[in-house]
Design a protein around this nucleic acid. Structure first.
Length: 844
RNA sequence: GCCCUCGUGGUGAAAUGGUAGACACAAAGGACUUAAAAUCCUUGCCCGUAAGGGAGUGCCAGUUCGAGUCUGGCCGAGGGCACCA
């Protein structure tokens, strides 16, 4: 048996593809297809997650190419970011050198996979050829009022010494460093993303090729809520407090006001030792998940009272409370303990009045303990009495508006996007500070504002700020001395428009060429991890809208027409007797179970979890490719699970994939050396019928992203060919079909398929291979299988011609031995007949 | 607490309301081999030599001639969000 040499074949075809240039012309009548996988952060080496992502994308891209689309399939590097700075500090390298080295390693590794990437289009966000355009976009956005400066509380990561967006804080910790986040007041740059809240929410409806799950997550993230603002008069002063509520219908149940510890009213108490103590206590709570869950609702009772706007003479105490957030609504609420659980808990603790104003719909629902938040009828509420909750909301909003003390208000959860980072390895923000206190953009002719390379990485905090000369500059218009902004941009900015840059990646004079943009955008199929469901995708949607505002030629709101989010790659976890994690390389399977290779002690096998460094359950793609070949690695990672679900990596699996590659190789050789000229024409016809059926099915499955099922069908096709050889079909038929078969396999296993094709046809190389055309007239649609049931249970089946009449079918069914037996002594009261599908006899 | 997704053999999984478990992994038995590897074949819950029959897609109901698939309720697992008023 001829053993396939996957290493040699991989190399041969990869060299061939690297020489081939993607030549598309805008004048082509071909339809375009922009296939994009999320570009990687160059962390060092590729991991199995990348392999899965790019293998899925490559099947789609190659399938579209074979179907005669102009396919844009580029790759780049999300190459700014903190890890480069950390690595630089640890290893005494420059972030730039570290990044370049990683890119070169990872590019080599990706090329080992035989992807149909057009490497001529490669971009890297840390190159000034990229980020100078980003600075230009920033200035355009600034001029359109989309960049704003705010002095606000920010999330300060004490480990990374940087500011995090609210969205980047997970359970009170930095999403990367995991350090407890502190609150700090700083002057920051923001993109005014909240200006687009409504559009970003509404346009989700137009994204019908996006997973529902992702759209829902974005919807919840934007978090639109309709409520009401109401001014409460403070009794002791002339001032009012504006509150926001989504339950204005419960206004008559209001028994206290609560404001955030950051509310302006707190100024009145800044001298009070009790208040200072209280505020310190608040800021120390609410960090860990556990603390939040168990955090007690605490308040500081002020000496102030407010007048209830609808109850003459009713005085309401004002509290400062730890559960009110300043950056949502107005930072103040009215408390209605009877119908809000938090307010209820608070009222219990401070012995405040609890006044029910909603009678539960179902009178059995006695409110034993806690707040009632369900539907019901309003009571104890003057003019609102007997109204439903929704009617009461409408009515009270009208009353509030009449009294000129507030009105209907729509509030979004989405906050502006903080983009300032006190870091070195990022895109410099092209702004300068003048002596008169003004902050202005750098003149566009002076772009790029380059990152200096002579920096001291041992400096704590921002090295740019510490640089001896970098920040000293002059304002071009006046020639006066000025100081540069030393903050750099959040790296999510880099990834918010890279897909646009791919349309004209070498264009020097502007970020993108409008003509190329109009041809290629939007991305037809975007593929990546679900972890980017909110931040990256939402920011990119914002960028597209911002670019529309700045560039009259562009009229596109949604950058990603189709989105596919793939699952993670998992692997079993291993621990030794000392409870230390072991990597898959460090264990071996024996008859006694799993043992450690290091000291032969017993290994506990844990559940399969997402591959991670901390659990050491990582398998290195490059070494897998070396052992099994690129095709086997691609094949296995696509075959075992639906692409949107998690997949479990296993040695058995990839080894089985390699065996299958070998089997196809053998099959190909057998067909080439097969000599037979004539054979049974009926068998030939049947073979072709089945083959064509598979061809249609597999095309359909690829379009639907059911790649695991497509692979199962390819296995069945291989069985069909073995059967064909056994039935001694003619060489002509087998050979012609095999050529088509290899084209079907090409998007999955391009090296094997091209090698088999070149052997079958005696050519050296293959170019512009088309997806085989199926022939519907060859399908065997004359014969079908009819299933026969008795009372809904299958009792037999028979093969017959298509469209058999009910009468004939019933006669035929009753001839079946087992059916006869089961119907004996029984009275049929009903026949169910579904043409070409089923017969069901119902007996008494 | 709120929102979402998912529950099918030892495992990963298939299945426009119409033959449940395709395809594969693992296992057991067999063939080939001096042996192993590789390859191929068979088996897969219960009764039965077999033909066949029974149970069966987390649990309980419902709709239907027919439910893994549709509806309601419950249980379990995973994910997202959160003092969001």
């Amino acid at each position: 048996m001829d053993k396939i040499n996957v290493g040699e074949i991989d190399k041969k075809w990869q060299i061939f593809w690297s020489k081939k240039k993607n030549q598309f012309k805008f004048t082509d009548k071909k339809k375009k297809f922009y296939c994009l996988e999320m570009f990687p952060y160059p962390s060092g080496k590729i991991h199995m997650g990348h392999v899965r992502n790019y293998a899925i994308g490559d099947v789609i891209a190659r399938y579209k190419m074979m179907n005669k689309f102009n396919v844009l399939h580029p790759m780049g590097w999300d190459s700014f970011g903190l890890p480069a700075e950390n690595a630089a500090r640890e290893n005494n390298l420059s972030p730039k050198d570290w990044t370049k080295k990683n890119i070169s390693t990872m590019k080599h590794q990706l090329q080992l996979l035989g992807l149909s990437i057009d490497w001529d289009l490669e971009i890297s966000t840390c190159d000034q050829e990229y980020y100078k355009h980003q600075q230009e976009l920033f200035i355009d956005f600034f001029n359109k009022g989309l960049v704003i400066r705010k002095e606000t509380y920010v999330n300060w990561d004490p480990v990374e010494k940087t500011v995090l967006a609210n969205e980047q804080v997970i359970n009170g910790r930095g999403w990367r460093s995991n350090a407890v986040v502190e609150r700090k007041k700083l002057n920051q740059w923001f993109f005014n993303i909240s200006k687009f809240s409504n559009e970003l929410l509404d346009d989700l409806k137009t994204l019908n090729e996006w997973p529902e799950k992702v759209k829902l997550m974005q919807q919840n993230w934007i978090g639109k809520s309709v409520g009401c603002e109401i001014d409460f008069q403070i009794l002791q002063t002339k001032k009012t407090i504006k509150i926001f509520t989504t339950r204005p219908d419960t206004i008559f149940g209001a028994t206290f006001l609560a404001v955030s510890t950051d509310h302006p009213i707190c100024e009145n108490f800044k001298e009070s030792n009790d208040f200072i103590k209280f505020r310190n206590k608040c800021s120390s709570v609410g960090t860990t998940e556990e603390a939040i869950a168990n955090a007690e609702k605490i308040g500081f009772k002020t000496n102030l009272f407010a007048q209830h706007p609808f109850i003459e003479g009713k005085k309401i105490p004002i509290f400062i409370a730890n559960f009110i957030l300043m950056d949502y609504g107005t930072g103040a609420i009215f408390g209605c303990p009877a119908h809000d659980q938090r307010d209820y808990d608070f009222a219990k603790k401070y012995a405040l009045e609890i006044l029910p104003v909603v009678k539960p719909e179902n009178s059995d629902q006695k409110n034993i303990e806690g707040a009632y938040t369900g539907d019901g009828t309003i009571i104890n509420s003057d003019f609102l009495n007997d109204l439903s909750i929704s009617k009461a909301k409408e009515r009270i909003i009208k009353e509030v508006e009449n009294k000129k003390i507030g009105g209907k208000k729509i509030t979004f959860r989405l906050k502006d996007w903080g983009i300032s980072r006190q870091r070195y390895w990022g895109c410099p923000i092209p702004m300068i500070y003048l002596k008169n206190g003004k902050v202005v953009p750098v003149d566009k002719s002076e772009l790029p504002v380059k990152l200096p390379e002579d920096i001291d990485m041992n400096y704590k905090g921002n090295p740019l700020d510490n640089h001896p000369t970098w920040k000293k500059t002059k304002y071009k218009k006046t020639g006066e001395d000025a100081v540069r902004e030393t903050d750099t941009l959040d790296t999510f900015v880099d990834s918010s428009w890279y897909f646009i840059r791919f349309c004209s990646p070498r264009l020097d004079k502007k970020p993108f060429d409008e003509k190329s943009f109009k041809y290629w955008m939007p991305v037809d199929q975007y593929i990546g991890g679900v972890e980017h469901a909110i931040l990256h995708l939402l920011y990119s949607r914002f960028f597209m809208r911002a670019i529309n505002l700045c560039n009259k030629e562009i009229k596109l709101n949604e950058p990603f027409k189709g989105l596919f989010t793939q699952g993670m790659v998992c692997h079993e976890t291993y621990k030794n007797e000392k409870n230390q994690w072991l990597s898959p390389d460090e264990i071996e399977k024996t008859n006694d179970g799993f043992l450690s290779k290091i000291d032969s002690t017993r290994v506990k096998v844990g559940p399969s979890e997402a591959m991670s460094k901390s659990k050491k359950n990582i398998v290195d793609p490059e070494s897998m490719i070396k052992i099994y070949g690129a095709d086997a690695v691609r094949w296995f990672i696509l075959s075992d699970s639906p692409p949107e679900r998690d997949v479990q990596w296993s040695t058995e699996g990839v080894s089985a994939a390699h065996k299958f590659i070998q089997r196809i190789w053998n099959l190909n050789n057998k067909i080439i050396s097969h000599k037979l000229k004539n054979s049974d024409s009926n068998n030939e016809k049947k073979f072709l019928a089945k083959f064509n059926d598979y061809l249609f099915k597999i095309s359909d499955l690829i379009k639907k992203f059911q790649l695991n099922v497509a692979i199962a069908k390819i296995h069945e096709l291989a069985n069909l060919f073995e059967e064909g050889l056994n039935k001694k079909l003619s060489k002509k038929n087998l050979c012609e079909s095999q050529i088509k078969f290899m084209k079907i396999m090409l998007p999955f296993t391009p090296h094997l398929a091209c090698e088999c094709l070149s052997k079958l046809e005696g050519k050296n190389f293959y170019e512009n291979i088309s997806w085989p055309k199926g022939n519907k007239s060859l399908l065997n649609d004359q014969e079908i299988t009819l299933v026969v049931q008795i009372n809904g249970k299958k009792r037999g089946l028979f093969i017959t011609k298509k469209d058999l009449s009910e009468k004939d079918a019933l006669v035929e069914a009753k001839k079946i031995e087992n059916i006869r037996k089961n119907l004996k002594d029984k009275k049929i009261i009903k026949n169910i007949f579904v043409k070409n599908k089923i017969i069901n006899f119902i007996t008494a």
